[in-house]
């Protein structure tokens, strides 16, 4: 049984309350919770785009596999040093924890796999990620399952995702993370008109123990998917205000979409240019830019005849 502190930390981490998790102090290093909380805190930093700070959080000489893995992920995400070396390090760690005499708890091994899987997935190494995370095996590492499922969803295999989900339902009871997984599957498949996802995020927004603009954004996105544009806008605006006016990429991107679907399309271009300039690496920006190039290419295939001008008018 984990302590309530750790539970709380995990909850914050999974529900995207990275900011509050980052601001949180660490327990006494001798405490049992020290490492786990440090792992999550560091991962929150990474997730929040603040990967550089991790090096100051985790001592470079740590012997702990999980922490090593997290710092490798941090350096991979931050892009400091060679990304390939960070991946190699994670690969090594994954191999090491398979050894018999390794001094790591199952939980730590789980983190290593989850962290490594995350990195591999980011690197586009889908198969490697799935293998590391133990897809199609009877893994009982819910974090790994969560990542596996997201990977499946990203490669358009909701059937496999659901299968994995159904399997984990048998042992993971009603874990928060499991519900989150279900919500993500719902978002992709649109099962029952996105009702699972919508109620999950609404429920978590009412969760008194944390507040996270990420949840608001997520519900906003869900509402977008449900076709409730006005409601989605209000969620997204609320999320922006919770983020102190500096919206993250996700919220901004969702706002662009929401504005684009509104009855009056004003403000879209402004939002869009802000998104494009602030987060040029956001997939929406990248894909729209790619499409723009494609457009020119495809449009060029059509021969445009001369304009019909009256000759003898």
């Amino acid at each position: 049984m984990e302590s309530s502190d750790l539970y709380n930390v995990k909850q914050q981490f999974f529900l995207g309350a990275f900011k509050s998790l980052m601001d949180r102090g660490l327990p006494d290093p001798s405490s049992e919770d020290y490492t786990p909380i440090l792992v999550y805190k560091a991962r929150a930093h990474i997730a929040h785009g603040d990967a550089q700070t991790v090096s100051s959080l985790i001592p470079s000489d740590t012997e702990n596999f999980a922490l090593k893995a997290v710092s490798a992920l941090a350096s991979y995400v931050a892009g400091t040093g060679s990304t390939e070396s960070a991946l190699e390090e994670l690969r090594d760690l994954c191999v090491e924890i398979e050894g018999d005499d390794v001094e790591a708890t199952e939980r730590e091994k789980g983190w290593v796999r989850a962290v490594a899987g995350t990195a591999f997935a980011r690197a586009g190494e889908v198969e490697e990620a799935l293998e590391t995370l133990g897809a199609e095996t009877a893994t009982e590492n819910l974090e790994a399952v969560a990542i596996i499922i997201q990977i499946y969803l990203s490669i358009h295999r909701p059937d496999l995702a659901r299968k994995e989900f159904e399997r984990s339902k048998q042992w993971a009871e009603d874990d928060l993370l499991l519900q989150l997984i279900e919500a993500s599957i719902g978002l992709v498949t649109g099962k029952d008109g996105y009702s699972d996802s919508h109620s999950f995020y609404t429920e978590q927004l009412a969760n008194p123990s944390l507040s996270s603009p990420h949840l608001l954004t997520a519900r906003g996105v869900t509402r977008l998917l449900r076709g409730e544009i006005a409601e989605a806008k209000s969620d997204l605006e609320e999320a922006v205000s919770q983020q102190g006016g500096h919206e993250d990429a996700e919220t901004l991107a969702a706002s662009v979409v929401a504005a684009g679907l509104g009855p009056k399309k004003d403000g879209v271009e402004e939002l869009w240019s802000r998104l494009a300039s602030t987060y040029p690496n956001h997939p929406l920006v990248e894909s729209v830019n790619a499409k723009a190039e494609q457009f020119d290419e495809f449009a060029a295939k059509y021969e445009i005849p001369p304009l019909a001008i009256p000759t003898a008018a």
Partner: peptide
């Protein structure tokens, strides 16, 4: 639209 349910992915 885009959403990251799982951190860092």
């Amino acid at each position: 639209t885009y959403l990251s349910p799982i951190a860092s992915l």
